[in-house]
């Protein structure tokens, strides 16, 4: 897709401001939705399907990747009804191995790239990293924006780095991490989201998970509202990924509620919504069993990988 800087103009056409108190209030109100019985089972399974099972540690090794790949394909060995997760999210050097392990499983290989997590590498190196990951078989690329340039007011710089990354990613699905915890205001989150979408991001993502605060409900709401406005204005549907600090099923369901009531049921699918997480998955599995049996199982029934 050829993108020109004139596409940046759509950002100003959509524009808009965010009232932080109002956004927090709306998110808190949605968090009181009561998800019970059948709705809970469906929500938990949907959360599993939307999960980007993630390991982004300096200590990641072939063994660790093998274990997580197995978990991604069959999260619950005892219960084949539990679906596989959406993707395995890893560093670029493990992409070749992961794509080998996950071939034909339906689980996508997602690689962070582009100087993750700071985004402070020179652009040409970031682009080479993206190209390398795609060449190794990554289906999806999670890049992080250079917050420095954007915070300094350089929207065009942000636009340019995302378009360049999009070109480098080629056929791979591009997720753009805004690292909202470093942007300082919801107005900036909204603007960064709009610039990233205008520049061709397939999905916008909250956080690297490496800094705090990571994903929050109000941030997800503000990003979902930006996606909705972008959709209205351009007809292009952009996905949302929340990541960082999401450990409980309750939180996962709250994000699903925000997506449902802001973007509608069309976004309730791994094509348009992801949750980046590691320990969340076991809690989802435990809650699914709880819904079925009425009992909480021994935590050792769930694999630690």
């Amino acid at each position: 897709m050829a993108v020109t800087t004139s596409d940046l103009e759509v950002v100003d056409r959509i524009g808009g401001a965010v009232d932080a108190v109002g956004a927090a209030q709306r998110a808190a109100s949605l968090a009181t939705r009561s998800i019970k019985r059948e709705a809970k089972v469906q929500g938990l399974q949907l959360a599993v399907r939307c999960c980007d099972l993630t390991t982004l540690e300096g200590s990641d090794s072939p063994g660790k990747i093998r274990q997580l790949a197995a978990k991604a394909m069959r999260p619950s060995p005892a219960d084949p009804a539990v679906p596989h997760v959406a993707a395995l999210c890893i560093y670029p050097r493990w992409v070749a191995l992961a794509s080998e392990l996950l071939r034909d499983s339906g689980v996508k290989v997602a690689s962070v790239a582009g100087g993750f997590p700071s985004g402070q590498l020179p652009l040409d190196l970031r682009l080479r990293e993206i190209e390398g990951a795609v060449a190794d078989g990554a289906d999806e690329i999670d890049i992080v924006i250079g917050r420095g340039a954007f915070l300094a007011g350089d929207d065009e710089g942000l636009f340019h780095e995302v378009t360049a990354s999009k070109n480098a990613a080629g056929p791979a699905h591009l997720k753009v991490i805004l690292e909202t915890g470093e942007l300082g205001s919801f107005d900036r989150v909204r603007r960064a989201a709009l610039v990233a979408m205008a520049a061709g991001a397939d999905t916008i993502k909250t956080s690297t998970g490496k800094i705090s605060p990571a994903a929050t409900l109000p941030t997800a709401l503000v990003m979902a509202e930006a996606i909705r406005d972008f959709w209205d204005q351009t007809g292009r549907a952009v996905g949302l990924k929340v990541a960082g600090g999401i450990r409980s099923s309750k939180d996962a369901l709250r994000y699903l509620v925000i997506v449902k009531e802001t973007l509608g049921d069309d976004w309730l699918s791994p094509d348009r919504f992801r949750i980046g997480a590691s320990s969340l998955l076991n809690d989802l599995l435990m809650q699914i069993d709880k819904q079925r049996t009425g009992l909480y199982s021994d935590p050792d029934r769930y694999t630690i990988d």
Partner: peptide, 11 residues
């Protein structure tokens, strides 16, 4: 594929 996800009654 998107799902239709409704809330069950929660009286």
């Amino acid at each position: 594929m998107a799902s239709s996800w409704g809330y069950s009654p929660a009286p």
